[in-house]
Amino acid sequence: MTDYIKADGWIDTFNGGEGAFSQQTYDGKIYAVPLNIAAACVFYNTEMFETAGITTMPTDWQGLLDACEKLQAAGYTPLTISAGTAWCLSMLAGYLCDSEGVDLAALDAGTASWLDSNVVNATNKMVEISKYFQETAAGDTNDVATANFYNEEAAMLIQGSWAIAQINGANPDFENKCGVFAFPGTDGRVIAKSDSLAMSATTKNPDAVIAFMKYFTDDTAQKYTAEVGGKIPVTTVEYDASKAPAQLAYVMDVFGSAKSTFGFYNESMASTEAGSTFDDAMVAIYLGTPVEEGLQTVEDFYKNNVWNK
């Protein structure tokens, strides 16, 4: 789609120009148009944090564990997460792997191993923090885990900013109690994800497709994306912050101060199946499989399906 995007100044409407297409670019060619950006953050209940005596947001791993400990001491469930919906747990694992310097490209190339110490350390951290999860995390779906948060049964939720609309929609009163901070200890790296539209290379009506796509990136749609959807717009559109959900401003802060972004771990691997294998291994480890044994399943998958191809 590169030629279409660069024609008639369409690309200039995007925030960051060509940089807005980094996740849609492969081999120097643009394959899709992003419609919004969502960042994975830590949503927290400001009242619970206040009651637990947490005044500054955690910025490193130990800070996060300390906050969990204080929340637990105050009688709250520190963290709600879904292991029933594997990608939710995997998103946490992705952050931990990235903060330990795990290099997915090296793993894909076979120059690193899933049993390397940095992967083991990241996974051990996941096990360490899992003692602060809600009791039912193993069986809770993503929706149930999110509901635990907006129903004020847990103090923190690690989730993408797409959840803002769900949180505020289900419990409008919770909006002013909901804060957001960046996942700690990642050296300014944030997981970001876009919804995108792609066009068939063989379509007979490319102009109609492009015109349709432009509806999604024009000012009206992008304002709606921010003000109603609570998602970060991809264009330079000015939106009314007072109309937008309060959390969007916090997410924008997190996103704006990020040094760099990276994709969902399971979506950034050699194949969809590789991503699922990683997700499943993380759930298995959370459920009690020893760390090395769980990671061995990912290692075996890569040996049989990625490194020998």
Binding site: G139, D140, V144, G288
Partner: peptide
């Protein structure tokens, strides 16, 4: 019914019984 947060485990909890992870136990 077998989701811990919603179903049978909530009924068991009324009697002080902690239900198992019906659909997630791997032992």
């Amino acid at each position: 019914i077998f989701t811990p947060k919603l179903g049978i485990n909530q009924v068991l909890a009324q009697f002080g019984i902690k239900g198992p992870l019906w659909l997630m136990d791997t032992k």
